[in-house]
Design a protein around this nucleic acid. Structure first.
Length: 651
RNA sequence: GGGUCCAUAGUUCAGUUUGGAUAGAAUGGCUGCCUGCGGAGCAGUUGGUCGAGGGUUCAAAUCCCUCUGGACCCGCCA
């Protein structure tokens, strides 16, 4: 807020300068930026460079002219309320502005409640649907899946806390090849169906399926071609809800799903609905959509060429895509169309919602079920169609992006606005050479190794969490001898989660991550625990303060009190950037910005902590520092909530 | 073959959308700082031809072209 106002103040001046030169402000993109060095002031403007092109003059001369001759005409008039103290010209032609620090601080201290508050600007009548996680239910989550879940969950938290109406879907592909693989294994091979692992230890069922069954069956295909035929039959049978295979598969899927969700809940991810691919297929959705696609001539029946006998979508940019094969079965891609339209609420909802489970945050998770089945306890709590669905955001592996763009092409032809259906593609997580070697895969002359569920090359999410738990427990015990084992492990869990979640949001979504089991799971430096530690130190001080209210509200500050140290001013400036950062993060659908902001804030706070003692100060100086401390804690809490890391009082 | 993306310090990454001043963090290495509000910290130091070459510009890590190296997409698989 504060910074935004100052920037627009400068911008208004610059517009007046343009008037003076008789130049239309639309012809020039005025930029107010923050300069790299303190000597250059607090804000900087590129106007002179822009004008030099039009006026055909040296930018330095223009800048001098603006600052010495033009600007004083109107700047001096509103000098009283202006937060800008000095304006100067620098080398090539920058116009720099320095803040009147005391005025700035005065505004900060008198507006603390609004500066520390989450900016709210969502419309509660408009629903935003986020789909994330969506892991095939034949394995446990590995670190790549965490990237998906954490990005999706942070986005959910970001939108929710800025006043939007958001619901989260977890889409379960319970009728695909990967599930069919483990069903083949259980039904047609010696591979035992049970919770006992081969070595006799009990393991989570999702680990057993992914780590052993799935890898094993994929090895077997090369020597047992009959199994691949069985798989094809199973895939076909899964389209019919009344087959024995379907029932059996549902049992397996739900069991794996519950184990997967345990991991997600350990990571503090929230969901509202689990929905299933098999139900999309078994519902009448496809037939309805198929009819419309034909009527609107969005797809064509091929009578010649390589796709003879198929229904295809002819994309201008991507070429031909088969939706219905010549044997009248539908392709993987086609299945996504009714699903997308269902999510957008453009078709009558064939599903009802039924209680599935209680979650870690005491909310209910619902599952979709097909109507027309007699069931008890149908819940009306989530009626998707009651809301105007503003948009759908799907978090996907970027390798799916091309299919999604095709899908959007079709949606647009169906008359759906382009802005409603969004997909956020993230690059995969790969393993560092050292980590790949630890797993027994030594791939030389490669920088990193792609994970593969089929080959068993992956680091499981639960293992990563456990490793961090162990590390954290050691550290906590070192520092807190009196804590019980139970308390230690509770705190350790929060630290482990924070390390993992922060790690996966801080990276750019469009860049590959090289995951290293040692370096990536760290508790020091640019990490979640560093942020928690900074918070804990601050909170510790705050708890020790007597008469908090007196220092927060009871002292009237004068100009003389506002003579602050550099570290204090830097921290206050960062606090003032809070709401702008949040808005930028929402506008760019990029939770990373919050993570980066939070880390910088923590660093500045640690500097403040080192240099500005609080408890031993008195009166006005103490009051100033307590106010800064208090607002830092509030803003940290807000940001930590978005990233999904818990503020701790001891660790 | 057609297309998309990536390359920045020993390592892992910001910065590229919208060109701007001496390219930033973290980690690693080296060196200091706990009778102090918690040392999971702080301060200092080391470390870069921003893959290569050309172009546009007053100004290029950022925009354009070429090349090199790498990842991925392009199926009547899912």
């Amino acid at each position: 807020m504060v910074f935004e106002n100052i920037k627009s103040e400068i911008e208004n001046w610059m517009k007046k300068v343009l008037l003076h030169y008789d130049i239309n402000e639309k012809d020039i993109n005025i930029e107010i930026t923050e300069p790299p060095l303190k000597e250059y002031g607090d804000f900087s403007c590129n106007l002179a460079f822009m004008l030099s092109k039009i006026l055909k003059k040296n930018p330095f001369e223009i800048a001098k002219d603006i600052v010495n001759n033009i600007l004083p005409n109107f700047k001096d008039k509103d000098n009283e309320k202006s937060l800008i103290e000095t304006v100067s010209v620098e080398k090539p032609g920058f116009i720099n502005f320095a803040l009147d620090i005391k005025k700035f601080l005065k505004i900060f201290f008198s507006n603390m409640p609004s500066i520390t508050q989450m900016p709210k600007y969502g419309n509660i009548q408009e629903l935003i649907l986020i789909e994330h996680t969506s892991v095939n239910p034949n394995k446990a989550l590995h670190v790549g899946h965490i990237r998906n879940a954490v990005i999706g969950d942070c986005l959910y938290r970001l939108l929710l806390s800025t006043g939007h109406n958001v619901k989260v879907l977890n889409y379960v592909d319970d009728s695909g090849l990967q599930v069919a693989d483990i069903i083949v294994a259980f039904k047609y091979t010696e591979i035992p169906f049970g919770e006992e692992n081969i070595d006799g230890t009990t393991k989570k069922f999702d680990h057993y399926c992914g780590n052993y069954v799935y890898v094993k069956i994929n090895e077997m295909y090369s020597t047992r071609p009959d199994l691949e035929i069985k798989r094809k039959i199973i895939l076909k049978e899964l389209e019919n809800p009344n087959t024995e295979v379907s029932n059996f598969t549902q049992q397996i899927v739900k069991r794996v799903l519950r184990d997967q969700l345990k991991t997600c809940w350990d990571l503090k991810c929230h969901y509202d609905i689990v929905n299933f691919e098999s139900q999309i297929i078994q519902s009448d959705l496809w037939n309805k959509i198929f009819k419309i696609l034909k009527e609107k001539q969005i797809i064509q029946f091929e009578t010649s060429g390589k796709n003879i006998g198929c229904w295809v979508f002819k994309s201008k940019t991507e070429g031909d895509k088969v939706l219905v094969r010549s044997d009248s079965t539908i392709t993987y891609f086609a299945k996504d169309i009714p699903y997308a339209i269902w999510k957008l609420g453009y078709i009558e909802n064939p599903f009802e919602l039924e209680f599935f489970s209680q979650q870690w945050d005491d909310t209910n998770l619902y599952q979709t079920t097909l109507k027309n089945r007699k069931r008890k306890e149908i819940s009306n709590e989530h009626q998707l169609i009651n809301f105007d669905i503003k948009k759908v955001i799907t978090i996907i592996d970027y390798r799916q992006e091309r299919l999604q763009s095709l899908l959007v092409e079709i949606l647009i032809k169906l008359g759906i606005e382009k802005t409603k259906y969004n997909y956020l593609g993230y690059e995969p997580v790969t393993l560092s050479n050292k980590t790949a070697e630890l797993l027994g895969f030594n791939l030389k002359n490669k920088k990193s190794t792609q994970m593969s569920g089929r080959k068993g090359i992956f680091i499981e999410a639960d293992d990563a969490l456990n490793l961090l738990m162990i590390k954290s427990c050691e550290e906590i015990s070192k520092r807190n001898e009196h804590l019980s084992g139970r308390e230690v492990s509770q705190i350790a869990k929060e630290i482990a989660i924070s390390s993992i979640r922060y790690y996966f949001v801080k990276h750019d979504i469009g860049k590959m991550i090289t995951f290293d089991i040692n370096d990536s799971l760290s508790l020091e430096g640019d990490t979640g625990p560093y942020i928690q530690y900074s918070y804990a130190r601050g909170k510790r001080i705050f708890n020790k303060i007597d008469n908090k209210n007196y220092y927060l509200d009871g002292i009237k500050l004068t100009d003389l009190d506002l003579d602050l140290d550099l570290t204090e001013i830097e921290l206050v400036k960062q606090l003032c950037k809070f709401s702008t950062t949040i808005k930028e993060s929402v506008n760019n659908t990029d939770p990373k910005l919050v993570a980066r902001f939070l880390f910088t804030l923590s660093t500045l706070f640690n500097n403040f902590y080192e240099e500005s003692p609080i408890l031993k100060e008195v009166e006005n100086k103490k009051s100033i520092r307590i106010k800064i401390l208090y607002s830092t804690l509030l803003i940290m809490e807000n940001c930590m909530n978005i990233i999904g890391i818990t503020p701790l009082e001891k660790m």
